[in-house]
Design a protein around this nucleic acid. Structure first.
Lengths: 160, 160
DNA sequence: CTGTATCCTTAAAGATACTG
DNA sequence: CAGTATCTTTAAGGATACAG
């Protein structure tokens, strides 16, 4: 996390996503929650993270609405909310990239929890199902001046 | 980035992915590279990042094989390699999550660069095309003892 | 323009002791 | 067991001056 710059000002959904769940521990905690871990001690053991840091991240994730406390306050379980569960495509895509490009040994395999089948590679397609290999961006209706200016600049600079 | 812990030891493809490209600036640089930015100064202007930090990240991304220098060494362009381009599904999935859960105003829209069509939501499916809403994990052939033990522990703890 | 070299500040992470 | 409270360390990030 940069010392000064507040990335959430960057008017970019990626930056905002990273602001909410973008540090290492946070994503790994979410991964563990997908694995079924829910106890403070389970996360701690799994990640080897310091108590205070873990407490801080769990609180932040709860505040963000990615995790929710369940059960007794004295010994809560942390469970993924819908918002949290919907991070799955991003996590799976990241893992698959890591599998392919950063692994020598075989990593754990991903399986569907319902059917136990192996997962396909995550793909990006158009709404009509056509595979996409490159994307570009267009400012949305709510884009701020800075964003609009960025795209105009880009268009002009396309010359070279 | 945690001060001490080396996440790459965690024998998890997500951790390794994050170790390679997991800090805020790095992912945003990659995003900008997808947008077509390639010059030192372009990244700098786009992100408002300090010179030394940017130089460091570009070097790291180049060392990781995510970016590649092209053109003259005096004034290189930084372009995505195949490894870099294959981060697209993860980036798009993260952006879509950010769009849905972290945006009030409308963010830029993602379009296919070939057809200009809008993108579909990234989905996770089994190899036979069945939609997946939850995943579990199975240790791969190359899993280390620690990983295997983790999964055995998990299985035993499934009781509660 | 694209860096490198320094210096400085801050904050994130770890360790540890303690509490309900 | 699940935290909180301190304290310390480290390193990441920013600013700036300078170089090729």
């Amino acid at each position: 996390m940069p010392g000064k710059t507040d990335l959430s000002t960057l008017n970019c959904s990626l930056a905002r996503a990273l602001a909410a769940a973008g540090d290492w521990w946070t994503l790994l905690i979410v991964r563990d929650a997908f694995l079924g871990l829910s106890r403070f001690g389970e996360f701690r053991e799994s990640l080897g993270i310091a108590r205070n840091i873990l407490a801080d991240r769990l609180a932040a994730l709860t505040a963000e609405g990615i995790l929710r406390q369940e059960g007794t306050p004295r010994r809560p379980r942390y469970r993924l909310t819908r918002k949290g569960r919907e991070m799955m495509p991003a996590l799976v895509a990241l893992m698959q990239w890591g599998d392919k490009w950063q692994s020598e040994g075989r990593p754990p395999m991903l399986l569907s929890d319902e059917s136990g089948e192996a997962l396909a590679k995550v793909r990006v397609t158009t709404r009509r199902g056509k595979e996409v290999s490159a994307v570009r961006f267009r400012p949305g209706p709510g884009a701020n001046p800075r964003t609009k200016e960025f795209f105009e600049r880009r268009a002009r600079n396309a010359e070279r």
